[in-house]
């Protein structure tokens, strides 16, 4: 019995050593693909450091950083003043690092004949003023608006840039991740949703907005209006392993990962 106990004890101590060089991250499902791929490549280069990435949504990343639960909180929106205040109350000094640019694409099912809308029309769809594709010159088919849970940073940015103070229609489906939105739009003929550029694929159709094609070029020159930066938040300026990881993402190699995952590198 004693033997087993002491073995267990030494195992736990040993485990403590193994994980000494840990980086933990949580938050935005938009930032997730970048963080995940960067973590894998970073661990290949630094076998003694282990990086764990969880999703949950920007709200989760920011609340985790405020409560000191992770080393890096990922977010696809900027931290709010209210949240900075909460962090200060917890003795946490939140530092922001932008790691990529991104646009939010408005996506519909491939079978949908519509391929462009105005920003105003998108707003009217998501606030519930338009209910049928017929009203937009398409087939007669009810519109299924797909939005995101309130913890989503993409939702917050969408709300600010597209809804401009309007409220999301009550019957919108609220899904938990970019991926869930993309796959539901792909299989629901009447659906419209919004996702970060990294989740565009040939299974959904990205709409031109105000006659502007969503792309790296139009985000960079400012003509595609639904764009934002992606952030990593830390407690204080990054140091140690966390600093090496963030430096890695900001390096040419890290920015190549940003591009590889479908997002837009910082210039």
């Amino acid at each position: 019995m004693k033997k087993i106990l002491s073995m267990l004890l030494s195992l736990t101590l040993f485990a403590g050593f193994l994980f000494a060089g840990d980086i933990t991250m949580s938050g935005s499902t938009t930032v997730f693909p970048i963080a995940q791929l960067a973590a894998e490549r970073f661990m290949d280069k630094n076998p003694d450091i282990s990086v764990s990435v969880r999703g949950g949504g920007s709200g989760v990343g920011i609340s985790d950083i405020i409560l000191g639960r992770v080393d890096i909180g990922n977010a696809s929106r900027q931290i709010k003043n209210k949240e900075i205040k909460q962090a200060k109350e917890n003795g946490i000094n939140v530092i922001e690092t932008a790691v990529a640019n991104d646009g939010i694409a408005i996506v519909v099912n491939l079978s949908n004949g519509i391929s462009e809308l105005t920003l105003e029309q998108v707003k009217m769809i998501f606030t519930g003023e338009l209910n049928n594709w017929k009203q937009l010159g398409g087939k007669s088919m009810p519109i299924v608006a797909i939005s995101r849970d309130v913890s989503s940073g993409t939702f917050e940015v969408f709300k600010e840039l597209v809804l401009k103070g309007g409220k999301v229609r009550e019957d919108a489906l609220l899904l938990a991740s970019n991926n869930a939105v993309a796959s539901n739009v792909a299989e629901t003929p009447g659906a419209i949703g919004y996702v970060g550029f990294g989740f565009l694929s040939d299974k959904v159709k990205a709409l031109n907005i105000d006659k502007v094609v969503p792309s790296e070029k139009t985000v960079n020159d400012g003509t595609y209006k639904i764009a934002r930066k992606l952030y990593m938040y830390t407690n204080g300026a990054p140091k140690g392993e966390v600093k090496s990881f963030i430096d890695y993402i900001l390096s040419d190699e890290g920015q190549a990962i940003v591009k590889e995952t479908g997002y837009i590198p910082l210039k």
Binding site: V60, D149, S151, A176
Partner: peptide
């Protein structure tokens, strides 16, 4: 779905 995000 909302608890993870809500701050204590």
């Amino acid at each position: 779905s909302e608890m993870g995000e809500a701050v204590n």
